[in-house]
Design a protein around this nucleic acid. Structure first.
Lengths: 65, 65
DNA sequence: ACAAAATGTATACTATACTTGACATTGTGT
DNA sequence: ACACAATGTCAAGTATAGTATACATTTTGT
């Protein structure tokens, strides 16, 4: 399942996947795969993404059902 | 750095590392290593742990500074 | 319509999360 | 003191997160 919250938060900061990737110290493909739901990132990467986008884990990676 | 919030939440539910591991579908060593801070779990495992312990990602895995 | 930027996707490789099995150590109860 | 549960730790293996390179497609601006 895609991570649309991440995609939206990135768009709100007017960042490309590549911008975010560089700021988080990973490759563009990694960000792309996470947004696409292709894989299961580590918590440290999730935290780095959250801090870069000014969000928390719950805001970007928690799905309440 | 150790994850004491996780250790405390598990203790509050009166669960052993092995209990938690089984409920999350991972090995005991994995839970032990996470509490010890030995590695960097995936977000899916973090979510499974949170749901088992009735906590959110922010409560167990977010460190505000 | 055109060019350039951003995104999607594929392959082959490397790093590391996670497993299984085993043993040592530290608690906790009786 | 004794037994047993819970925790810490090691080593060798497997699965998959994440990389580098490359190319196709879509989006956006002019």
């Amino acid at each position: 399942m895609k991570n649309l919250k991440l995609k939206a938060a990135r768009a709100a900061m007017d960042m490309s996947q590549d911008d975010l990737a560089k700021l988080c110290g990973v490759s563009r493909q990694t960000i792309n795969a996470i947004e696409k739901g292709d894989y299961n990132p580590t918590i440290n990467l999730c935290k780095a993404i959250c801090k870069t986008l000014g969000k928390t884990l719950d805001e970007l990676f928690w799905d309440e059902e």
